[in-house]
Write a protein that binds this DNA or RNA. Sequence first.
DNA 1: TATGAATGAGGCTTCATTCAT
DNA 2: AATGAATGAAGCCTCATTCAT
Lengths: 223, 223, 223, 223
Amino acid sequence: MSTHLTSSIERAHKKVQQFRAREQAILDAALELLIAQGEDRVTVESIAEHINIGKGTIYKHFRSKGEIYVQLLLDYEKKLTNSLQEALKDSSAAAARIYFEFRLSHPERDRLFQRLEEKLRYDPSVAEQIAALHELRASNRDGLNKMIKHRIDIGALEDVDPAFHYGICWALAQGAVELWHNPFFNDYVGDKQAFLEFVSEVGINMGRAGIRSGKNASYKAKS
Amino acid sequence: MSTHLTSSIERAHKKVQQFRAREQAILDAALELLIAQGEDRVTVESIAEHINIGKGTIYKHFRSKGEIYVQLLLDYEKKLTNSLQEALKDSSAAAARIYFEFRLSHPERDRLFQRLEEKLRYDPSVAEQIAALHELRASNRDGLNKMIKHRIDIGALEDVDPAFHYGICWALAQGAVELWHNPFFNDYVGDKQAFLEFVSEVGINMGRAGIRSGKNASYKAKS
Amino acid sequence: MSTHLTSSIERAHKKVQQFRAREQAILDAALELLIAQGEDRVTVESIAEHINIGKGTIYKHFRSKGEIYVQLLLDYEKKLTNSLQEALKDSSAAAARIYFEFRLSHPERDRLFQRLEEKLRYDPSVAEQIAALHELRASNRDGLNKMIKHRIDIGALEDVDPAFHYGICWALAQGAVELWHNPFFNDYVGDKQAFLEFVSEVGINMGRAGIRSGKNASYKAKS
Amino acid sequence: MSTHLTSSIERAHKKVQQFRAREQAILDAALELLIAQGEDRVTVESIAEHINIGKGTIYKHFRSKGEIYVQLLLDYEKKLTNSLQEALKDSSAAAARIYFEFRLSHPERDRLFQRLEEKLRYDPSVAEQIAALHELRASNRDGLNKMIKHRIDIGALEDVDPAFHYGICWALAQGAVELWHNPFFNDYVGDKQAFLEFVSEVGINMGRAGIRSGKNASYKAKS
DNA sequence: TATGAATGAGGCTTCATTCAT
DNA sequence: AATGAATGAAGCCTCATTCAT
């Protein structure tokens, strides 16, 4: 009886595990296809076929196509959070480096999530998860912000609104990612990998104090 | 007889003008709706309704939905070309400023065109126009390139592959545009306009010689 | 004054002539395009463009696209009528030869008209003209019929319902025309022209008395 | 357990059968409507409505409207193949009789398929199936050809290019089928069924040696 | 629970015909 | 009379989601 009970529990446990695994398989398949084919060409059916399950099964795990995508967004943001967490412990510029490296190491992925988020931003059926995503991102931002402030205080960064420092890093990373996918540049920039390194380098140094000329511009923080 | 002839010509002329005007109305409506609703939510029918014409009328002016979009792309690129032409006459940094200002002055528009181009890039039905677009852009790029080279020669810009300078400007502008649309940032960066100015400022100075630390990185030009 | 009047009449006359000529031009263009492109690919616009007139002009001459096509049908049938008229004066087999030659000399045209007629057969807007067409054809048929009867009487043709003789000639001509357009046969029958000659030959002799074996079949006329 | 398994398999089997049945229902509905209304008036929606299924369902079974039609073509040609196979075993004229009977027994169907094939012939989306169709037909043709050759050798058929014999049979059958649909003839030929028998009879005897007069025509095989 | 057949709203495009100039 | 811009019905096809088994 005891063995029976145990095995029953075990079986149930195994089932739960399988269920979880399948969920992950769906997410992996979706991500793979999204990167390979673009956001507009992936259908629920193609995801199901790619992992040999029925289309209906996907709807046992996710309430809509959108929910698959938000989940991907959340997972991605969590990874970034984890990477930053460590680097933010001291207030060095290390976090900036991590940030750039994280985003630029897989430009296709990064851009995909940008696009995905746009699609979902005003979809009421995933509003809740989008809110969770933004919360996560706010925490990352606040961590970086704190670091930026500290570096402004010690004179390492120019004294402007810390949001500007963050924003410009975001923008440069974002732009580099877009550029990566632009075939027009692919034919023009010879060594794309070297270029991304260059971007990181520039990005990390971008806000250093004393390097810009427009010292009296309106956006300067009033000391 | 002569007046009659004249008025006949005039009438024909008027007709042509009206036709052109309608074409422009379609383009304007398309642009307006694209910016307001996003690329995926605009239908041919909605464009037609927006200016109170029949769906079929649009196909008198454009062979496909895609052709409307390419036309918008071309018009935009031509405007940029005109703006740059002037500034590129001397080889100062003025062109860089123009470039940033042009792209950042209407971020919604700029981003829209980015997205549009992606959609059309491999659409065989507009391949020809896309080629024309790329030609135009290449000429802009070459103009900027020449200016960059000159500024490297006089020591004003760091001596790396000129494509890198161009690329990083493109990327920063691109990223700033994306950021502009990110509601997450909208809530965070207080004065968005000031931020864009900051971006321009940083962008223009980004590649100045002697301001970065990573002097021995692989991407440095061998002197 | 008289000259003035004359020239006025002349001008009016010329105008009428031009109008007629234009009508013929429309018909010619339609026929040409129909043969070149197939019945389903010809549009009213393409006809107008082909002769450099406005689309609307066509509707000054014909009330609908269908009316253009019926007119073509009628003209074709009239030509056949004229050709037969002569040959039917004596009651020799000459008419049968003329019939085959007429239909097989331009197989594309013949088949086109077959198709056109099908399209129009139940179009109420051209019912009247279709009736006229059938009347014309009936007169041709009756002429042939009379000849057939005579040849049965003199023992030159087998004694079956004359309609059968007519029908089988029609069918063979029709079939040969279809075959002419079948690419499957084009690759198979080496000398298409020779084949059509063979068809004519067989067709003319098809109903000769005393050559078939099934003498007691149900369709035999009871003598 | 065993019963459970069995019933599971049975259920799956049943499902497959139902799917097949529906596919056949679509084909049947399409055929019925095509014959009743003509090739140009049948829409995908009308087919769906006719068997009370959704428009989209049809696209689970066929990739395009064209694929429904090719399937009909293939099924038809296969039936003919089966019928001929038997008759071609000996080299008598039996196959010719079968051929005529097959085509003339359902003239509407035969003509429809002719028309359908024309429509699809250059549709790239069904090129593969059209090729299969032609292969099937070529095999039928070759079978008949062999029989014809044999009958020429034994002096039963006139010594002309065997393709001519085949072609003329095809043409006569084709023409008879066309005639069957021509309302002009419907009013004229009293007993249509008897007429078709007459056609068969004539067709089978058409090429018999020694019955034509034009013995020296260019198309004659040089003995 | 897993399945995949069924659904139908929604999008793009064509073209005969009308009508104001 | 000649024009050609405008129209909109009609057709094909896609795909997220539902639901019976």
